[in-house]
Design a protein around this nucleic acid. Structure first.
Lengths: 156, 156
DNA sequence: TATTGTTATACTCTATAACTATA
DNA sequence: TATAGTTATAGAGTATAACAATA
């Protein structure tokens, strides 16, 4: 019995197709995610949420409000405060004033942060490309399309 | 920009196919997993690891050794001890002696545990089937096959 | 009153490592 | 020495809720 078959203590044949598909989807995602987390930790001493927050900021020249980061990353504001604090402590992002609203602040990558993120993004892309190396371009497109249907069917 | 496009603060068009696929795979998995965890919590006041452990035991009449559970669930033995303790506390599983090795013990579902698991498994299957309701049987097979290639390419 | 961000806290999930009791 | 299981602890990741400052 391979790992996926073991995942819920059962062999595939006895389950509806959907359940088999879910176990496989979960296994693939977990394998890739574990590698990405491990890579971020070992090579850059960082975590996935921190990488994600920096990725959010990478394309916005003026940074984003905490509020907006919370919405985009789908975690509560308190957690954004915590992640931001860490990144500020390492000089990778900074809190800037929002003119006209003294409650708010926007967070932006520093030069150092932007430089580091570019390096991390290259490594990240490499890990991902390697993970799907077994698929041809056409397969990737097919997978992307089919998962698009799944996503549409379950989006909140 | 939809949730997936936001996930790493970027639009799809600028990325290689593999990266776009990964973001979509991650989004789908997280959406489904969040629902499953939520359902297990709300309807059965339990968690995914606890459900998984019970699922491992469901098909083995004589139960499994902690060791074997650890291997199958891909978590360390200490964690199996913890999950087992909780389930024992609720009378859902029991620790039994292993003849010929007094270090070991096997864990097995109690009658109560087996009854509860059957109920949970039905609900679980329902959530999963619903999650993939947007796909036809042929699409599900195609997805399963393609993900099989992915899995093969990255298996540890 | 409502919103922005912070703080405090708690819980799940997992890993590492030291420990015991057997083998 | 090696293995089965336990214990203790740490850290990631997330949520809830109370709070201060501002709108």
């Amino acid at each position: 019995m391979d790992k996926e078959a073991r995942l819920h203590g059962t062999t595939s044949a006895e389950h509806p197709q959907a359940l088999r598909l879910w176990l496989r989807l979960l296994t693939c995602t977990q394998l890739i995610e574990t590698r990405v987390r491990g890579g971020l930790r070992e090579r850059f001493n960082t975590t996935l949420p921190r990488f994600d927050l920096m990725a959010q900021l990478e394309r916005s020249v003026d940074g984003l409000k905490m509020n907006e980061l919370s919405r985009r990353m789908m975690v509560t504001r308190g957690n954004i405060t915590g992640i931001t604090d860490q990144l500020v402590g390492e000089g990778l992002v900074e809190r800037l004033a929002v003119p006209g609203d003294r409650r708010a602040s926007r967070v932006a990558l520093t030069k150092k942060g932007r430089r580091l993120f570019n390096t991390m993004a290259l490594a990240h892309e490499d890990w991902i490309v390697k993970a799907f190396a077994g698929l041809g371009a056409k397969d990737i497109t097919t997978l992307h399309t089919l998962l698009g249907h799944v996503k549409k069917g379950i989006s909140p």
